[in-house]
């Protein structure tokens, strides 16, 4: 197993062989636990009568003292002409600051209930080897975000909430589904058949909004050990926003190894899947790069392990 860069092993196989299954899926498992945990917090009330957390992702109250509110929904309300009460403003500010620090799209990969759906769609998409399909520009979601705000202002309502699958699914699970499951199926097949990584990667304005929140976030992934990269391209294959990797991984000497694009969801899949552990979580001021371990490898990267 030393011909990486020439023979393509299936994505992730090398990491599995080197680090073991858990080592190669650590952040994926943690993310699923986190997603389940955040959902469970809200379900403890209706299921077991433990009302520690009330409400849903749009707005909640924890232990009767900690309000949390989705700032994107509040912003739409403001565009629609309603200035919210202090409780919601405080709740919105807490969420804003928290995601501002840990990375806006941490919401997408660690909390959002739609993420497991689109991840599953992508997993199946890979398995079935389907074509990419419609791939609109990554900027599309920002345009949609702008449109949502404009429509909120024009109609005087919180516009995105009439179709927002994120809050609808969450509310559905906690309060009652109605026909929301149809929406989930719709998104699943959209991602599977119409557009690879379509919803979370190109369309969802909630993700776009949280991206914007996290532009200056502290927590970042860094290609610390980028000189060890053997071009297996596995990180590109697993990353839901793989356009963010190149500047950090393939940057010239002296450029930052940090993945600074706010599109990165801090999901940590690149860390998992890399057999030579190029990536690591760090903070945005840590621009340290590991020195190449073996001078020869710099001149002949593809055959580094062959010797």
């Amino acid at each position: 197993m030393s011909t990486k860069g020439k023979v393509h092993l299936p994505v992730g196989q090398e990491a599995r062989e080197v680090k073991g299954w858990f080592g190669a899926h650590k952040y994926l498992v943690l993310r699923r636990i986190s997603q389940t945990f955040f959902l469970f917090l809200f379900l403890m009330g209706p299921w077991f009568g433990l009302w520690w957390v009330q409400g849903n992702l749009a707005g909640s109250m924890t232990f009767g003292v900690l309000p949390l509110n989705d700032p994107m929904i509040l912003l739409q309300g403001m565009f629609a002409g309603h200035w919210p009460e202090t409780t919601a403003l405080i709740g919105g500010l807490i969420v804003l600051v928290a995601y501002g620090l840990i990375g806006g799209r941490v919401y997408c990969s660690w909390v959002c209930p739609i993420n497991p759906v689109t991840d599953t769609a992508h997993w199946l998409h890979d398995k079935l080897n389907l074509p990419k399909g419609w791939q609109p520009k990554r900027a599309t979601r920002y345009w949609i975000l702008g449109t949502v705000m404009a429509v909120s202002a024009l109609t005087g309502t919180i516009a995105w909430e009439v179709i927002n699958p994120v809050t609808m699914v969450h509310r559905g699970l906690v309060f009652g589904m109605g026909f929301v499951w149809a929406l989930v199926i719709g998104i699943f097949f959209f991602d599977l058949l119409v557009a690879r990584r379509g919803w979370c990667g190109h369309v969802c304005p909630v993700g776009a909004f949280y991206s914007l929140i996290g532009t200056k976030s502290l927590l970042r992934v860094s290609a610390v050990d980028r000189s060890a990269c053997d071009d297996c391209m596995d990180c590109y294959a697993v990353c839901p926003e793989n356009q963010v990797i190149s500047p950090a991984l393939k940057g010239k000497d002296g450029s930052t190894p940090l993945i600074l694009s706010p599109d990165c969801t801090n999901c940590g899949r690149c860390i998992d899947v890399c057999a030579v552990d190029v990536f690591a979580f760090t903070h945005r001021f840590d621009t340290h790069v590991e020195a190449p371990k073996d001078a020869v490898s710099d001149t002949e990267p593809p055959n580094r392990h062959a010797a």
Binding site: Q54, N69, I158, R171, G172, G176, G178, F179
Partner: peptide, 30 residues
């Protein structure tokens, strides 16, 4: 009209109603 600009559909009112009077409208049902 103002209500739809203000209500974030969090359901906290529903939770605090001691008589279970209030419900949140479900998609396509209510």
């Amino acid at each position: 009209d103002d209500f739809l600009a203000a209500c974030i559909r969090c359901g906290l009112c529903v939770r605090d109603c001691p008589y279970d009077t209030l419900v949140l409208a479900e998609l396509g049902v209510d």
